[in-house]
Amino acid sequence: MNIHTYEKLWLVAAMVLIVGFIATITYGSVGLGITMVGDQQDTVEPTELDDERFSDPRVAQVGENEYEAYVTAQMFSFQPDPIEVPEDSEVTFYVTSRDVIHSFSLVGTNVNTMVIPGEVAEMTVEFDEPDEYGVVCNEYCGPNHHNMEGMVYVVPEDEFDLTELDAEAPGEVETGDDIDVTATVENRLLDPIETTVTLEIGNETVSEDVTIDGGETDETTFTVDSAQLGEGDHEWTVTVDDHTDSWTVTVADELEDDDADDDADEESNENTDAGDDADDGENGTEDETDTDETESDASGGDGE
């Protein structure tokens, strides 16, 4: 075969390019530790997703600065959304789909994976500085694909917590009875936290300092005299750091029927459910924070 010298030269140059490319990529893998999304995770049932990771999509702390984020993608949202992690942390994302193929891609970064039903994508990422990243689905997933987005917030360490707040109180009491407002505060961090549980009801504010060990749950009960509040609807709000939970208690002269107690229970249960229901696709576990403050003020005014 008759190959011109120049072409032989080019053949060598081409091989140098090819080998050089492969070498660069290998350096990225071996030298820099850049890891591909792979087959590290077992498969899951996309319709069930009943393992403890995806039945409650959330961020969990697993070590000193190590966190795991369990994320589900579905038409046309991500859960949880937003995802909040602290600065200087190593976060491993576990992402799966409930329906079709999506992607989970942090805009302006190299965090990018396909999300395939049945498979779990695992990606470990280091977040250094506080920042915020948009999340897009970059695989076509249906007619509203372009509306599928989310956020990842990397927050300063002192602003970060994994506190779950759930407050309960009867929906209706007879004037003169005590109103017990019970705040259940779970600290999902590994370290203890010191914080304050505050109840606002009517124009009263009461608070209590608590220390909660890592992984523990604290119950704080405030007792309010309904007579002081007077007859009518009273909005109450429990606050722990930036988490709030609120509901309304009705003080009546005489309870209308015997079922009133049951109704009250149901109402407070509903309240709890709204917080825990991970499937509502809106705000996931952070639901409690959605409180309309002006409304609460207005009802406080009512109490006067």
Partner: peptide
């Protein structure tokens, strides 16, 4: 810049 392919409206609310 991270603009995805295959999308009708690559304009997002949050970012």
């Amino acid at each position: 810049l991270g603009i995805p392919r295959r999308t009708a409206e690559p304009q997002y609310d949050g970012f």
